[in-house]
Amino acid sequence: MSLSATTAPPPAASPEQAPRKPRLAHRLARFDLKASPYLYIAPFFIIFGIFGLYPIIRTVWMSLHNWNLIAPDRRSFIGLQNYVDLLSDDYFWNAVRNTVGIFLLATIPQILLALFLANTLNRGLRWRTFFRMAILVPNVTSVAAVGIVFGTLFQRDFGVINWVLSLISVDAIDWRNTTWGSWTAISVMVDWRWTGYNALIFLAAMQAIPRDLYESAAIDGASRWRQLWSITLPMIRPTLIFVVIISTIGGLQLFTEPLIFSGDSLGGNLRQFQTVAMYMFEKGIETTTTAGYGAAVAGMLFLMIIVASVLNFLLIRKSVR
């Protein structure tokens, strides 16, 4: 189905009329036929070229230099030295560890919760449409606002969360200054924003599963739990993997939530929640003399995302077959 769309459209003008002098309308029609498809897709490619491709090329170029952000006369080509330095940079690997750690801590509960929500919404629930709309609402809010509000909730001294915990006599947790505390706080922000979105995608996939499968399973005496494991999950597997890919890309680029939570690009006194994107920001923007190094961090992040995506792609190919 998708193949036929990419072949050339049927010829518009009939060849029998060819000997006649081509009229303007005719020429316009030919132009339309040949050129207009390109014009239709042009806006995307022009914008992609300016805001997507050019920055990527420029970043790669910068990463090969000792690049001073504000003094053009103090820049020099150094080849791959930035990348070599990066591989032995403890703070870079610390950022990689944090990013992967927060990603796992955020994504695993998020996908389980999203599956649970989708499964619930897939049933004959009262006010179903309302709930389906409502779970998407957190996704509409601005990330910065989420960061600020949750940053306040997770305050040590006057935060709501510590107050609630104090009701069940748990001592105040210093969310920012502990590794697990900070990872948890950031994961909660990420999950709050993305669980509903993923649940909706799962729900769409679940709706596409034929009802009669469930009916026959029910006749065979399969419990709801069994139906979930044996019908729903296998049937939505491609969607599941799609969600994992999207979450991986998002998770590796995690930036705004921890940045606002931290208040600076360090991610805590011991960089206990500095992500790769924050390290890129520290080196590339905050430190004027190491913009090339920051660009190299961006390059490594790009590579990491490609590797993760290829792994996911291999998985998806296997599962769809």
């Binding site: 210093d174 200054n177 502990t178 600076d264 360090l266 006194n269 011991l270």
Partner: peptide, 16 residues
């Protein structure tokens, strides 16, 4: 800010 005060804040919060 990023070396001196960060180290002192880590001391203050008991991280180091």
């Amino acid at each position: 800010e990023k070396a001196f005060e960060a180290a002192l804040n880590a001391l203050m919060s008991g991280q180091l």
